[in-house]
Design a protein around this nucleic acid. Structure first.
Lengths: 331, 331
DNA sequence: AGATAAAAGGTAAACGTTTACATTGATTTT
DNA sequence: AAAATCAATGTAAACGTTTACCTTTTATCT
């Protein structure tokens, strides 16, 4: 690989001049500029991002970190695309890491990202008081939380109005005549799960319905637990007539349980899932969901981060995007 | 961030000694080693990967590049996890990029990865003679192709036996009594698509059945084209009784078309998809698919790459993993 | 005991950039 | 015409490591 020095030699100028041409900054006379450009082209020169990042203290390093629980979750995959597309548009690269909701992995990757000198990091914390993320923030690296958030923190964040989304879903079910509504929740130490749970309560309260604890189950956001929780609920002496499942993977699991019992949707049991699925339309019947604007969340977070880099002093921004109840035929 | 120099000063040794402790190489007496370790702990020292990569010529830079068409495709997401998990186990980080099957984007990311001094790159080429990838290989960077491959190239690659997978699927359909079998293919300049097409022909030939060109449609691997191609096939005066769709996204599209027409599966139309889907079991009816070992493909490719780094002279390895026909109820 | 070898650690250069500062030559000011 | 200013470019240090080579100390051999 040709280096700055090679180009300088070839164009008979100093490395400083070449550097200036690359960063098309400062004043370099068009004549020399073209000379250097020509030399760069001839040698197929590509600036070395590593050296550049090492040296450059202020200014952009053109590298972002993104840590998500699991790229195989379509919600996070969509969000990741939002991040990537905005980053690409600004010539930033993204380093993507999967934490598997594991603090140790998260910590490993945060260390890596920091020692890679990323400009900033986007992530959904593993819990509301995720110690690793809290420590990260102390170091001063720009961080934007997405989807989930930290308790009581003035910082850049992009959330979805989970409480409202859940409210609308449950409200819809109640208006359809359902009274026994099963809830399959996720871990309660993450903000989204708690908020959605509150939305459920809100809707029940709004209709003056009591909340029966036996209809409420806590899973772990994964497919298997969705299936298990659904089995439990359907085994109840007086089983729910509708199921509201708090994320996409658990919804898939619940659907498996329902099909295994040859129950008909929505005749025997109505279903609403949180998170849209790319194949929701292809399901039979097409699934009603609370659609989160995942792509937009990723976009917004990246834009926020970019703005923060430009102006480290700017006020913290707190974005709350709206989810949308997409009614199809499963309820 | 504390640097090597800080640690050296704090421990009253030279930076060389600290470096040696970090790379726990060479001979440094346990006494000093502990002294340095203590200093590192006290200062919360994390070696700077950027500086390290810049300096280190031989040896591992602990960074891999992975370029895939789209992380939102579950096949590639699963593969990416395979890559990531092996990388993580070896303390490598992965830089993941989405090319969107766009040569320009692919080229941009290849440039980025090279100038990030990655140890090597894993990718499915955009076409069998992808010029960007060909050029990349010339530069000498270790490259492993996955899923798709380049024509006539002795290089490390991990493929799936696409021809055989397709053969088994079509053979199965024929044995079930189907004669008019629609094929929804992808771009024909990618190896997987061509191979699968050959498997279809093989199966027809094995049963001495003619191949009717009107039952064969070429899509672009995306959901919309799967839907469109399915519509076309179902509009035929004598429509196929079974559909074999050559990738996951197009299968979802085809399913949409089928549901829109209120056709019953498998009664009215049988369906087999290439690529398993995490939700295949949750579909109604559960979908029969040719399952590719995507995770294993990613794993194997990463292991291959790691071996290549250890021994640049080793013979090129060509892996061909076996797909599996997973029979559920859609045919 | 003196010579030699081995072990432990230090010094300084190198990696490819950016950038503060210095230099040069031309242009403007007085 | 000398002084001052300015524009264009060059010089060299710095970023945080690794590593070839050198120095010092200690052990081993004859």
């Amino acid at each position: 690989m040709a280096s700055l020095t090679d180009v300088a030699r070839h164009a008979q100028v100093s490395i400083a001049t070449v550097s200036r041409v690359i960063n098309n900054s400062d004043k370099v006379v068009p004549e020399t500029r073209d000379l250097v450009r020509k030399a760069m082209a001839e040698l197929g020169f590509k600036p070395n991002r590593v050296a550049r990042r090492l040296r450059q203290k202020g200014g952009f390093r053109h590298l972002l970190g993104l840590i998500i629980p699991d790229i195989q979750n379509p919600f996070f995959a969509e969000m990741a695309r939002g991040v990537e597309d905005v980053a690409y548009a600004h010539k930033f690269a993204v380093m993507l890491c999967n934490s598997d909701e594991d603090l140790r992995k998260e910590e490993f990757y945060i260390d890596v990202l920091q020692s890679e000198s990323v400009d900033g990091i986007i992530l959904p914390p593993i819990s509301e008081r995720d110690p690793v993320v809290l420590k990260l923030i102390e170091t001063g690296v720009p961080v934007v939380t997405v989807d989930r958030s930290l308790t009581h923190r003035a910082m850049d964040k992009v959330e979805v109005d989970n409480r409202r989304g859940a409210f609308e879903a449950v409200d819809h079910l109640i208006k359809l005549g359902h009274r026994r509504i099963g809830l399959i929740a996720g871990r309660l130490n993450v903000s989204t799960s708690r908020e959605r749970r509150l939305g459920y309560d809100d809707a029940m309260a709004a209709h003056k319905l009591p909340v029966a604890p036996e209809y409420i189950r806590g899973g772990d956001f994964k497919q298997a637990s969705g299936r298990a929780m659904a089995e439990e609920l359907l085994d109840l002496p007086s089983p729910p007539t509708a199921l509201f499942v708090l994320n996409n993977l658990m919804t898939v699991g619940a659907l498996e349980a329902i099909h295994r019992r040859k129950l008909r949707i929505p005749g025997d049991i109505a279903v609403i899932g949180f998170d849209d699925l790319p194949w929701a339309e292809a399901l039979d019947p097409p699934l009603t969901v609370v659609r989160q604007p995942a792509y937009e969340v990723g976009q917004a977070a990246t834009e926020l981060l970019l703005k923060r880099l430009e102006d480290p002093k700017r006020a913290e921004t707190h974005l709350k995007l709206l989810p949308k109840l997409v009614i199809r035929n499963s309820c």
